[in-house]
């Protein structure tokens, strides 16, 4: 396997006049091309900070991130799916998916073709001309996934994308996410604090602990897909990760 992203000795310190927050310390992580990585940990353990640094929203204090052997620049192609509904309300589902392609000056016809392809991938073809406020929460996040993927990103960064959804919709979307990942073979970094979700989705689970935020252990998930979240091995693994997060 080829190493896609290499993170070395990464450190992040937020300095504000009131206080100094040591968000991340000594983070080392190699992510292979096409891997599905889940980042888990309690709030304040730095998992979202790491994702934001990969997205270019937050500056690095010390250490390096390289992608395909080169230092990460601000404007590489990444897809981001946010926890909040980040669709543009003034654009239809299809126009939302086309946004990134417009930025890249893809001709109109091709834009249309690509956006419909990706809406089909998230099973929302018939809703292409709906405005977001006429879609349910789960549908909106599916459009958001389609928007991030249509851009054909090098990596897909997902920050608790299904956290605000009800349990049933969340399961449906987890299954859909695996389906999309298998079809597109993208590298995915997925932040969650739902451990069952992490075990269901990830090839590897990176467990973070706080004060300062650091990696405690990287757990490999060897369960065959589709995974059964009631199987004994599944639950055993979930319990192991749970212990890692809480007792340190």
């Amino acid at each position: 396997m080829v190493t896609k992203i290499s993170i070395q000795n990464l450190r992040k310190i937020y300095d504000t006049p009131e206080r100094r927050v040591h968000a991340l310390e000594g983070v080392n992580l190699n992510i292979e091309d096409g891997e599905f990585i889940c980042l888990v940990g309690l709030s304040g353990c730095g998992k979202t900070t790491l994702l934001n640094m990969l997205a270019g929203f937050v500056e690095i204090t010390a250490g390096t991130i390289t992608m395909d052997g080169k230092t990460l620049t601000q404007d590489y192609d990444k897809g981001v799916v946010f926890q909040e509904y980040a669709l543009f309300p003034w654009r239809t589902a299809r126009q939302n998916v086309e946004y990134g392609l417009e930025i890249r000056n893809v001709p109109e016809e091709e834009r249309r073709r690509i956006s419909l392809d990706f809406l089909r991938l998230v099973r929302l073809e018939e809703f292409a001309d709906f405005f977001p406020h006429n879609l349910s929460g789960g549908m909106r996040q599916r459009v958001a996934v389609a928007r991030a993927m249509a851009f054909d990103p090098q990596i897909l960064l997902m920050d608790e994308p299904f956290g605000a959804l009800d349990a049933q919709t969340r399961e449906e979307l987890q299954e859909l996410t695996v389906d999309v990942w298998q079809k597109t073979k993208k590298t995915i970094l997925y932040v969650t604090h739902n451990l069952s979700e992490a075990v269901y989705l990830g090839n590897r689970i990176v467990v973070f602990v706080p004060n300062p935020g650091r990696i405690r252990e990287i757990v490999k998930v060897d369960l065959p897909r589709p995974r059964d979240d009631l199987a004994p091995e599944f639950i055993k693994l979930q319990r192991h990760v749970n212990d890692l997060i809480r007792d340190f």
Binding site: A86, Y99, I103
Partner: peptide, 21 residues
């Protein structure tokens, strides 16, 4: 701000973000 971040993540420049977001 999440709309602006979404546009930034797709590498829209400042002027484009202003116009389209």
């Amino acid at each position: 701000p999440v709309w602006i971040r979404a546009a930034q993540s797709m590498n829209a420049d400042k002027m484009t973000i202003f116009r389209t977001v």
